[in-house]
Design a protein around this nucleic acid. Structure first.
Lengths: 236, 236
DNA sequence: CCAAAAGTGTTAAGCATACACCCATGC
DNA sequence: GCATGGGTGTATGCTTAACACTTTTGG
Protein backbone atom coordinates (compact mmCIF):
# COMPACT_ATOMS: atom_id res chain seq x y z
CA UNK A 1 0.00 0.00 0.00
CA UNK A 2 1.49 3.32 -0.75
CA UNK A 3 -1.25 5.66 0.18
CA UNK A 4 -1.20 7.43 -3.13
CA UNK A 5 -3.55 9.65 -5.05
CA UNK A 6 -2.89 7.63 -8.13
CA UNK A 7 -2.71 4.04 -6.96
CA UNK A 8 -3.40 2.41 -3.65
CA UNK A 9 -1.89 -0.89 -4.36
CA UNK A 10 1.11 -0.57 -6.57
CA UNK A 11 3.80 -2.90 -5.27
CA UNK A 12 6.84 -2.18 -7.32
CA UNK A 13 10.32 -1.40 -6.15
CA UNK A 14 12.38 1.03 -8.17
CA UNK A 15 16.12 0.47 -8.38
CA UNK A 16 19.03 2.13 -10.13
CA UNK A 17 21.93 0.28 -11.73
CA UNK A 18 25.13 1.78 -13.10
CA UNK A 19 27.24 0.35 -15.92
CA UNK A 20 30.68 1.90 -15.50
CA UNK A 21 33.22 1.34 -18.24
CA UNK A 22 36.82 2.21 -17.51
CA UNK A 23 39.49 2.77 -20.13
CA UNK A 24 43.06 2.13 -19.04
CA UNK A 25 44.82 3.22 -22.25
CA UNK A 26 44.79 -0.35 -23.44
CA UNK A 27 41.38 -1.89 -23.06
CA UNK A 28 37.91 -1.39 -21.73
CA UNK A 29 37.03 -2.60 -18.27
CA UNK A 30 33.77 -2.97 -16.44
CA UNK A 31 33.25 -2.08 -12.81
CA UNK A 32 31.40 -4.69 -10.78
CA UNK A 33 30.31 -5.01 -7.20
CA UNK A 34 30.00 -7.97 -4.91
CA UNK A 35 26.35 -8.05 -4.04
CA UNK A 36 25.55 -7.60 -0.37
CA UNK A 37 21.91 -8.68 -0.23
CA UNK A 38 19.97 -11.79 -0.94
CA UNK A 39 19.11 -13.27 -3.30
CA UNK A 40 22.48 -13.75 -5.04
CA UNK A 41 24.44 -12.36 -2.11
CA UNK A 42 28.13 -12.58 -3.00
CA UNK A 43 27.61 -12.69 -6.77
CA UNK A 44 28.96 -10.06 -9.12
CA UNK A 45 26.51 -7.41 -10.10
CA UNK A 46 26.37 -3.92 -11.50
CA UNK A 47 26.55 -1.02 -9.09
CA UNK A 48 22.99 -0.70 -7.90
CA UNK A 49 20.52 -0.05 -5.12
CA UNK A 50 16.96 1.05 -4.64
CA UNK A 51 16.00 4.59 -5.60
CA UNK A 52 15.88 7.04 -2.71
CA UNK A 53 12.58 8.79 -2.04
CA UNK A 54 14.12 12.22 -1.93
CA UNK A 55 16.57 12.11 -4.81
CA UNK A 56 15.94 12.55 -8.51
CA UNK A 57 16.98 9.68 -10.74
CA UNK A 58 20.20 11.38 -11.74
CA UNK A 59 21.02 12.31 -8.18
CA UNK A 60 20.31 8.86 -6.89
CA UNK A 61 22.50 7.25 -9.54
CA UNK A 62 25.39 9.49 -8.53
CA UNK A 63 24.79 8.86 -4.87
CA UNK A 64 24.70 5.09 -5.28
CA UNK A 65 27.85 5.11 -7.35
CA UNK A 66 29.59 7.19 -4.70
CA UNK A 67 28.37 5.05 -1.85
CA UNK A 68 29.42 1.76 -3.39
CA UNK A 69 32.66 2.76 -5.08
CA UNK A 70 33.77 6.18 -3.89
CA UNK A 71 33.55 7.53 -7.44
CA UNK A 72 32.35 11.12 -7.50
CA UNK A 73 31.41 13.72 -10.07
CA UNK A 74 31.09 11.23 -12.85
CA UNK A 75 28.83 12.04 -15.76
CA UNK A 76 26.19 9.34 -15.85
CA UNK A 77 23.85 8.99 -18.79
CA UNK A 78 20.51 7.30 -18.51
CA UNK A 79 20.33 4.24 -20.74
CA UNK A 80 16.90 2.70 -20.31
CA UNK A 81 14.59 1.11 -17.80
CA UNK A 82 14.28 -2.63 -17.41
CA UNK A 83 10.96 -3.91 -16.18
CA UNK A 84 10.24 -7.48 -17.20
CA UNK A 85 7.92 -9.10 -14.70
CA UNK A 86 10.22 -11.69 -13.23
CA UNK A 87 13.58 -10.15 -13.79
CA UNK A 88 14.17 -10.32 -10.05
CA UNK A 89 12.96 -13.50 -8.37
CA UNK A 90 12.55 -11.86 -4.97
CA UNK A 91 9.96 -9.28 -5.91
CA UNK A 92 8.83 -6.92 -8.62
CA UNK A 93 11.67 -4.52 -9.29
CA UNK A 94 12.17 -2.19 -12.17
CA UNK A 95 15.64 -0.89 -12.72
CA UNK A 96 16.64 2.39 -14.28
CA UNK A 97 20.07 1.94 -15.78
CA UNK A 98 22.77 4.58 -16.12
CA UNK A 99 26.14 4.21 -17.74
CA UNK A 100 29.42 6.04 -18.06
CA UNK A 101 32.89 5.72 -19.49
CA UNK A 102 35.74 6.91 -17.33
CA UNK A 103 39.47 6.85 -17.36
CA UNK A 104 41.08 4.37 -15.03
CA UNK A 105 44.35 5.40 -13.54
CA UNK A 106 46.45 3.74 -10.88
CA UNK A 107 45.06 5.80 -8.06
CA UNK A 108 41.48 5.18 -8.95
CA UNK A 109 42.22 1.54 -9.38
CA UNK A 110 43.26 1.00 -5.79
CA UNK A 111 40.73 3.29 -4.21
CA UNK A 112 37.89 1.44 -5.78
CA UNK A 113 39.11 -1.99 -4.96
CA UNK A 114 39.00 -1.24 -1.27
CA UNK A 115 35.28 -1.10 -1.54
CA UNK A 116 34.20 -4.51 -2.74
CA UNK A 117 34.14 -3.17 -6.24
CA UNK A 118 36.43 -4.57 -8.89
CA UNK A 119 37.41 -3.83 -12.46
CA UNK A 120 37.13 -6.66 -14.98
CA UNK A 121 38.45 -6.62 -18.52
CA UNK A 122 35.42 -6.35 -20.72
CA UNK A 123 36.12 -9.62 -22.46
CA UNK A 124 36.67 -11.37 -19.18
CA UNK A 125 33.60 -10.44 -17.22
CA UNK A 126 32.18 -13.08 -14.85
CA UNK A 127 28.60 -14.20 -15.00
CA UNK A 128 26.27 -11.45 -13.86
CA UNK A 129 23.02 -11.73 -11.95
CA UNK A 130 19.55 -11.08 -13.30
CA UNK A 131 19.47 -9.22 -16.57
CA UNK A 132 22.68 -7.34 -15.89
CA UNK A 133 24.40 -8.80 -18.94
CA UNK A 134 21.72 -7.32 -21.14
CA UNK A 135 22.32 -3.99 -19.51
CA UNK A 136 26.00 -4.20 -20.34
CA UNK A 137 25.35 -5.22 -23.92
CA UNK A 138 22.86 -2.43 -24.42
CA UNK A 139 25.30 0.03 -22.91
CA UNK A 140 27.97 -0.92 -25.41
CA UNK A 141 25.57 -0.33 -28.25
CA UNK A 142 24.74 3.07 -26.82
CA UNK A 143 28.40 3.83 -26.27
CA UNK A 144 29.01 3.21 -29.94
CA UNK A 145 26.14 5.43 -30.89
CA UNK A 146 27.38 8.22 -28.70
CA UNK A 147 30.95 7.95 -29.87
CA UNK A 148 29.63 8.76 -33.32
CA UNK A 149 28.19 12.07 -32.36
CA UNK A 150 30.83 13.50 -30.11
CA UNK A 151 34.44 12.55 -30.10
CA UNK A 152 33.84 10.77 -26.87
CA UNK A 153 33.85 13.23 -24.09
CA UNK A 154 32.68 11.42 -20.99
CA UNK A 155 35.07 11.54 -18.12
CA UNK A 156 38.08 11.39 -20.36
CA UNK A 157 37.40 14.96 -21.24
CA UNK A 158 39.06 16.90 -18.41
CA UNK A 159 42.37 15.18 -19.01
CA UNK A 160 44.74 15.51 -21.88
CA UNK A 161 45.23 12.55 -24.15
CA UNK A 162 47.22 11.55 -27.19
CA UNK A 163 45.74 10.66 -30.52
CA UNK A 164 47.07 7.10 -30.37
CA UNK A 165 45.26 6.74 -27.04
CA UNK A 166 42.07 8.11 -28.46
CA UNK A 167 42.37 5.78 -31.40
CA UNK A 168 42.87 2.82 -29.07
CA UNK A 169 39.77 3.85 -27.16
CA UNK A 170 37.75 3.92 -30.34
CA UNK A 171 39.19 0.62 -31.42
CA UNK A 172 38.13 -0.90 -28.10
CA UNK A 173 34.65 0.49 -28.32
CA UNK A 174 34.17 -0.72 -31.85
CA UNK A 175 36.27 -3.80 -31.48
CA UNK A 176 38.15 -3.16 -34.67
CA UNK A 177 41.26 -1.42 -36.04
CA UNK A 178 41.44 1.89 -37.82
CA UNK A 179 44.02 3.25 -40.20
CA UNK A 180 45.87 5.86 -38.17
CA UNK A 181 46.16 8.36 -41.02
CA UNK A 182 42.45 8.29 -41.71
CA UNK A 183 41.55 8.31 -38.06
CA UNK A 184 43.65 11.41 -37.36
CA UNK A 185 42.41 13.19 -40.45
CA UNK A 186 38.85 12.59 -39.46
CA UNK A 187 39.05 13.41 -35.82
CA UNK A 188 41.07 16.56 -36.40
CA UNK A 189 38.69 17.71 -39.11
CA UNK A 190 36.00 17.92 -36.46
CA UNK A 191 37.72 20.92 -35.08
CA UNK A 192 37.05 20.14 -31.46
CA UNK A 193 40.51 19.07 -30.39
CA UNK A 194 43.33 21.37 -29.45
CA UNK A 195 46.94 20.34 -29.68
CA UNK A 196 49.19 21.26 -26.80
CA UNK A 197 52.97 21.50 -26.81
CA UNK A 198 53.20 18.74 -24.26
CA UNK A 199 54.30 15.28 -25.14
CA UNK A 200 53.47 12.04 -23.46
CA UNK A 201 56.59 9.92 -23.58
CA UNK A 202 55.25 7.07 -21.55
CA UNK A 203 54.67 4.79 -24.50
CA UNK A 204 57.36 5.69 -26.99
CA UNK A 205 60.77 7.29 -27.26
CA UNK A 206 59.57 9.88 -29.67
CA UNK A 207 56.58 10.82 -27.55
CA UNK A 208 53.09 11.72 -28.69
CA UNK A 209 51.53 15.16 -28.49
CA UNK A 210 48.80 15.66 -25.95
CA UNK A 211 45.46 17.06 -27.02
CA UNK A 212 42.55 18.53 -25.13
CA UNK A 213 39.07 19.59 -26.06
CA UNK A 214 38.64 23.14 -27.29
CA UNK A 215 37.00 25.57 -24.92
CA UNK A 216 34.85 27.54 -27.31
CA UNK A 217 32.73 25.04 -29.14
CA UNK A 218 30.95 28.04 -30.61
CA UNK A 219 32.39 27.46 -34.05
CA UNK A 220 31.33 26.71 -37.56
CA UNK A 221 31.01 23.09 -36.59
CA UNK A 222 27.81 23.89 -34.75
CA UNK A 223 24.86 22.61 -36.71
CA UNK A 224 21.75 24.68 -37.20
CA UNK A 225 19.14 22.23 -36.00
CA UNK A 226 16.58 23.53 -38.46
CA UNK A 227 18.49 22.51 -41.53
CA UNK A 228 18.95 18.97 -42.69
CA UNK A 229 19.90 17.46 -45.99
CA UNK A 230 19.71 13.88 -47.13
CA UNK A 231 23.21 13.24 -45.87
CA UNK A 232 22.24 14.26 -42.35
CA UNK A 233 19.17 12.15 -42.47
CA UNK A 234 20.40 8.85 -43.79
CA UNK A 235 23.51 7.68 -42.13
CA UNK A 236 24.19 4.04 -42.59
CA UNK B 1 5.45 0.68 3.18
CA UNK B 2 5.79 -1.91 0.53
CA UNK B 3 6.89 -4.89 2.49
CA UNK B 4 9.88 -5.51 0.34
CA UNK B 5 13.13 -7.39 0.69
CA UNK B 6 14.95 -4.44 -0.70
CA UNK B 7 13.26 -1.43 0.80
CA UNK B 8 10.65 -1.04 3.46
CA UNK B 9 9.86 2.53 2.90
CA UNK B 10 10.10 3.43 -0.72
CA UNK B 11 7.17 5.69 -1.59
CA UNK B 12 7.36 6.18 -5.28
CA UNK B 13 4.63 5.68 -7.84
CA UNK B 14 5.60 4.39 -11.25
CA UNK B 15 3.66 5.63 -14.25
CA UNK B 16 3.79 5.12 -17.99
CA UNK B 17 3.22 7.83 -20.59
CA UNK B 18 2.87 7.39 -24.33
CA UNK B 19 3.78 9.97 -26.97
CA UNK B 20 1.84 8.98 -30.07
CA UNK B 21 2.61 10.78 -33.31
CA UNK B 22 0.20 10.36 -36.18
CA UNK B 23 0.99 11.09 -39.81
CA UNK B 24 -1.97 11.97 -42.02
CA UNK B 25 -0.10 12.23 -45.34
CA UNK B 26 0.28 15.92 -44.77
CA UNK B 27 1.56 16.66 -41.34
CA UNK B 28 2.46 15.21 -37.99
CA UNK B 29 -0.11 15.13 -35.23
CA UNK B 30 0.09 14.37 -31.56
CA UNK B 31 -2.45 12.31 -29.66
CA UNK B 32 -3.57 13.82 -26.35
CA UNK B 33 -5.97 12.82 -23.67
CA UNK B 34 -8.20 14.84 -21.38
CA UNK B 35 -6.94 14.01 -17.95
CA UNK B 36 -9.44 12.32 -15.68
CA UNK B 37 -7.78 12.65 -12.29
CA UNK B 38 -6.66 15.44 -10.07
CA UNK B 39 -4.50 17.39 -10.05
CA UNK B 40 -4.99 18.96 -13.49
CA UNK B 41 -8.22 17.09 -14.15
CA UNK B 42 -9.53 18.23 -17.51
CA UNK B 43 -6.18 19.40 -18.87
CA UNK B 44 -4.53 17.90 -21.90
CA UNK B 45 -1.94 15.30 -21.18
CA UNK B 46 -0.10 12.46 -22.81
CA UNK B 47 -1.68 9.03 -22.71
CA UNK B 48 -0.67 7.74 -19.31
CA UNK B 49 -1.51 5.87 -16.15
CA UNK B 50 0.22 4.07 -13.33
CA UNK B 51 2.13 0.89 -14.10
CA UNK B 52 0.25 -2.32 -13.37
CA UNK B 53 1.79 -4.72 -10.88
CA UNK B 54 1.45 -7.70 -13.15
CA UNK B 55 2.47 -6.29 -16.50
CA UNK B 56 5.92 -5.67 -17.88
CA UNK B 57 6.70 -2.11 -18.93
CA UNK B 58 6.07 -2.83 -22.58
CA UNK B 59 2.86 -4.67 -21.84
CA UNK B 60 1.59 -1.96 -19.56
CA UNK B 61 2.30 0.73 -22.15
CA UNK B 62 0.28 -1.18 -24.74
CA UNK B 63 -2.51 -1.81 -22.28
CA UNK B 64 -2.76 1.83 -21.25
CA UNK B 65 -2.77 2.97 -24.84
CA UNK B 66 -5.53 0.52 -25.64
CA UNK B 67 -7.58 1.43 -22.62
CA UNK B 68 -7.46 5.15 -23.20
CA UNK B 69 -7.65 5.29 -26.98
CA UNK B 70 -8.65 1.91 -28.37
CA UNK B 71 -5.38 1.70 -30.31
CA UNK B 72 -4.07 -1.82 -30.45
CA UNK B 73 -0.98 -3.62 -31.71
CA UNK B 74 1.05 -0.49 -32.02
CA UNK B 75 4.79 -0.75 -31.81
CA UNK B 76 5.84 1.35 -28.84
CA UNK B 77 9.46 2.18 -28.21
CA UNK B 78 10.76 3.12 -24.81
CA UNK B 79 12.17 6.63 -24.80
CA UNK B 80 13.41 7.34 -21.29
CA UNK B 81 12.33 7.67 -17.69
CA UNK B 82 11.55 10.99 -16.09
CA UNK B 83 12.11 11.25 -12.38
CA UNK B 84 12.72 14.77 -11.16
CA UNK B 85 11.66 15.12 -7.57
CA UNK B 86 8.74 17.48 -7.96
CA UNK B 87 7.67 16.79 -11.47
CA UNK B 88 4.22 15.90 -10.12
CA UNK B 89 2.95 18.14 -7.33
CA UNK B 90 0.66 15.48 -5.89
CA UNK B 91 3.27 12.92 -4.99
CA UNK B 92 6.55 11.37 -6.10
CA UNK B 93 5.95 9.82 -9.48
CA UNK B 94 8.46 8.61 -11.99
CA UNK B 95 7.25 8.16 -15.53
CA UNK B 96 8.54 5.75 -18.09
CA UNK B 97 7.84 7.21 -21.50
CA UNK B 98 7.10 5.32 -24.69
CA UNK B 99 6.55 6.72 -28.14
CA UNK B 100 5.33 5.67 -31.54
CA UNK B 101 4.57 7.00 -34.96
CA UNK B 102 1.45 5.70 -36.64
CA UNK B 103 -0.56 6.40 -39.69
CA UNK B 104 -3.78 8.28 -39.15
CA UNK B 105 -6.61 7.41 -41.44
CA UNK B 106 -10.21 8.50 -41.38
CA UNK B 107 -11.43 5.49 -39.51
CA UNK B 108 -8.86 5.74 -36.80
CA UNK B 109 -9.53 9.40 -36.49
CA UNK B 110 -13.14 8.98 -35.46
CA UNK B 111 -12.66 5.90 -33.35
CA UNK B 112 -10.15 7.62 -31.19
CA UNK B 113 -12.07 10.78 -30.73
CA UNK B 114 -14.91 8.90 -29.12
CA UNK B 115 -12.63 8.24 -26.22
CA UNK B 116 -11.67 11.65 -24.86
CA UNK B 117 -8.53 11.45 -26.91
CA UNK B 118 -7.85 13.98 -29.62
CA UNK B 119 -5.31 14.55 -32.38
CA UNK B 120 -3.56 17.93 -32.49
CA UNK B 121 -1.37 19.21 -35.29
CA UNK B 122 2.14 19.13 -33.93
CA UNK B 123 2.63 22.85 -34.32
CA UNK B 124 -0.67 23.58 -32.67
CA UNK B 125 -0.46 21.57 -29.48
CA UNK B 126 -2.07 23.05 -26.36
CA UNK B 127 -0.21 23.52 -23.16
CA UNK B 128 0.60 20.20 -21.53
CA UNK B 129 0.74 19.32 -17.88
CA UNK B 130 3.85 18.55 -15.86
CA UNK B 131 6.91 17.79 -17.94
CA UNK B 132 4.93 16.37 -20.83
CA UNK B 133 6.25 18.97 -23.27
CA UNK B 134 9.77 17.81 -22.56
CA UNK B 135 8.67 14.29 -23.30
CA UNK B 136 7.31 15.37 -26.67
CA UNK B 137 10.45 17.33 -27.54
CA UNK B 138 12.68 14.44 -26.59
CA UNK B 139 10.54 12.09 -28.64
CA UNK B 140 10.97 14.20 -31.75
CA UNK B 141 14.71 14.11 -31.32
CA UNK B 142 14.57 10.35 -30.99
CA UNK B 143 12.26 10.09 -33.98
CA UNK B 144 14.85 11.89 -36.07
CA UNK B 145 17.56 9.61 -34.84
CA UNK B 146 15.55 6.55 -35.68
CA UNK B 147 14.53 7.75 -39.08
CA UNK B 148 18.21 7.82 -39.92
CA UNK B 149 18.77 4.17 -39.31
CA UNK B 150 15.73 2.60 -40.81
CA UNK B 151 13.60 4.10 -43.49
CA UNK B 152 10.97 4.71 -40.90
CA UNK B 153 9.15 1.51 -40.28
CA UNK B 154 6.92 2.06 -37.29
CA UNK B 155 3.29 1.47 -37.94
CA UNK B 156 3.44 2.83 -41.43
CA UNK B 157 5.15 -0.35 -42.41
CA UNK B 158 2.26 -2.76 -42.99
CA UNK B 159 0.62 -0.41 -45.47
CA UNK B 160 1.70 0.59 -48.92
CA UNK B 161 2.81 4.14 -49.50
CA UNK B 162 4.02 6.37 -52.29
CA UNK B 163 7.41 7.97 -52.40
CA UNK B 164 5.97 11.47 -52.32
CA UNK B 165 4.16 10.47 -49.11
CA UNK B 166 7.32 9.07 -47.62
CA UNK B 167 9.15 12.22 -48.55
CA UNK B 168 6.49 14.34 -46.92
CA UNK B 169 6.80 12.27 -43.78
CA UNK B 170 10.51 12.84 -43.68
CA UNK B 171 10.04 16.50 -44.36
CA UNK B 172 7.65 16.70 -41.42
CA UNK B 173 9.97 14.90 -39.11
CA UNK B 174 12.94 17.03 -40.04
CA UNK B 175 10.94 20.15 -40.63
CA UNK B 176 12.63 20.86 -43.93
CA UNK B 177 12.34 20.17 -47.67
CA UNK B 178 14.26 17.66 -49.71
CA UNK B 179 15.01 17.58 -53.41
CA UNK B 180 12.77 14.84 -54.74
CA UNK B 181 15.35 13.44 -57.16
CA UNK B 182 17.95 13.07 -54.45
CA UNK B 183 15.48 11.75 -51.94
CA UNK B 184 14.26 9.02 -54.27
CA UNK B 185 17.75 8.09 -55.33
CA UNK B 186 18.84 7.74 -51.74
CA UNK B 187 15.89 5.87 -50.39
CA UNK B 188 15.77 3.45 -53.31
CA UNK B 189 19.49 2.79 -53.06
CA UNK B 190 18.85 1.32 -49.62
CA UNK B 191 17.27 -1.62 -51.29
CA UNK B 192 14.55 -2.12 -48.75
CA UNK B 193 11.57 -0.83 -50.70
CA UNK B 194 9.64 -2.79 -53.26
CA UNK B 195 7.67 -1.14 -56.01
CA UNK B 196 4.23 -2.50 -56.74
CA UNK B 197 2.20 -2.06 -59.90
CA UNK B 198 -0.46 -0.23 -58.00
CA UNK B 199 -0.94 3.46 -58.24
CA UNK B 200 -2.39 5.83 -55.72
CA UNK B 201 -4.37 8.40 -57.66
CA UNK B 202 -5.74 10.22 -54.68
CA UNK B 203 -3.39 13.15 -54.93
CA UNK B 204 -2.71 13.55 -58.62
CA UNK B 205 -4.13 12.74 -62.04
CA UNK B 206 -1.03 10.91 -63.03
CA UNK B 207 -0.96 8.80 -59.89
CA UNK B 208 2.03 7.70 -57.86
CA UNK B 209 3.31 4.15 -57.58
CA UNK B 210 2.83 2.41 -54.27
CA UNK B 211 5.78 0.85 -52.48
CA UNK B 212 6.07 -1.62 -49.66
CA UNK B 213 8.92 -2.93 -47.59
CA UNK B 214 10.77 -5.95 -48.94
CA UNK B 215 10.15 -9.22 -47.18
CA UNK B 216 13.63 -10.67 -47.18
CA UNK B 217 15.82 -8.11 -45.55
CA UNK B 218 18.54 -10.75 -45.73
CA UNK B 219 20.46 -8.87 -48.37
CA UNK B 220 23.79 -7.26 -48.88
CA UNK B 221 22.52 -4.23 -47.05
CA UNK B 222 22.85 -6.10 -43.78
CA UNK B 223 25.82 -4.82 -41.85
CA UNK B 224 28.21 -7.14 -40.13
CA UNK B 225 28.25 -5.64 -36.67
CA UNK B 226 31.86 -6.59 -36.12
CA UNK B 227 33.22 -4.40 -38.87
CA UNK B 228 33.35 -0.66 -38.73
CA UNK B 229 35.28 1.93 -40.63
CA UNK B 230 35.70 5.60 -39.97
CA UNK B 231 32.63 6.38 -41.99
CA UNK B 232 30.48 4.15 -39.81
CA UNK B 233 31.91 5.63 -36.69
CA UNK B 234 31.75 9.33 -37.34
CA UNK B 235 28.47 10.40 -38.71
CA UNK B 236 27.83 14.08 -38.50
C1' DC C 1 -5.37 21.39 -74.01
C1' DC C 2 -4.08 22.59 -69.58
C1' DA C 3 -3.13 22.18 -64.76
C1' DA C 4 -0.97 19.52 -61.28
C1' DA C 5 1.77 16.25 -59.40
C1' DA C 6 5.05 12.29 -60.58
C1' DG C 7 9.04 10.96 -62.33
C1' DT C 8 13.82 11.21 -64.24
C1' DG C 9 19.71 12.20 -65.26
C1' DT C 10 24.05 14.71 -65.16
C1' DT C 11 27.76 17.25 -63.43
C1' DA C 12 30.83 18.95 -59.88
C1' DA C 13 32.53 18.81 -55.22
C1' DG C 14 33.59 16.66 -51.09
C1' DC C 15 34.63 12.68 -48.42
C1' DA C 16 36.29 8.00 -47.37
C1' DT C 17 39.52 4.49 -48.52
C1' DA C 18 43.74 2.35 -49.33
C1' DC C 19 48.27 2.44 -48.98
C1' DA C 20 54.08 3.14 -47.35
C1' DC C 21 57.53 5.79 -45.76
C1' DC C 22 60.11 9.21 -42.74
C1' DC C 23 60.74 11.10 -37.95
C1' DA C 24 62.36 11.50 -33.24
C1' DT C 25 64.19 9.51 -29.40
C1' DG C 26 66.26 6.45 -25.69
C1' DC C 27 68.92 2.93 -25.20
C1' DG D 1 72.84 2.91 -34.93
C1' DC D 2 68.72 0.66 -34.30
C1' DA D 3 64.29 -0.44 -32.57
C1' DT D 4 59.94 1.52 -31.42
C1' DG D 5 56.01 3.93 -31.87
C1' DG D 6 54.49 8.71 -33.84
C1' DG D 7 53.49 11.21 -37.54
C1' DT D 8 52.40 12.45 -42.50
C1' DG D 9 50.26 12.77 -48.14
C1' DT D 10 48.13 11.24 -52.35
C1' DA D 11 45.39 9.03 -55.85
C1' DT D 12 40.96 6.66 -56.62
C1' DG D 13 36.25 5.87 -56.23
C1' DC D 14 31.99 6.79 -54.12
C1' DT D 15 28.39 9.75 -52.28
C1' DT D 16 25.99 13.96 -52.12
C1' DA D 17 24.24 18.37 -53.86
C1' DA D 18 22.52 21.21 -57.14
C1' DC D 19 19.88 21.77 -60.82
C1' DA D 20 15.11 21.75 -64.94
C1' DC D 21 12.48 19.35 -67.89
C1' DT D 22 9.22 15.56 -69.50
C1' DT D 23 5.28 12.47 -68.49
C1' DT D 24 0.63 11.28 -67.40
C1' DT D 25 -4.07 11.98 -66.99
C1' DG D 26 -8.65 13.95 -65.44
C1' DG D 27 -11.23 17.58 -66.16
Amino acid sequence: MNNSNYSDNQKITVAIDCVIFGFDSEKLNLLLFKRKVNPFKGSWSLIGEVLENDLSLDESANEILFKLTGLENIYLKQLKTYGELNRDPAERVISIVYFSLIRVDELLLKEIENKDAKWFALNDVPELILDHSDMVKDSIVELRNMAKDQPLGFELLPKLFTLPQLQTLYECIYNTKFDSRNFRKKILSLNVLEKTNLKDKSTSRKGAFLFGFKENISDDNQKNSDTYNTKDVFQF
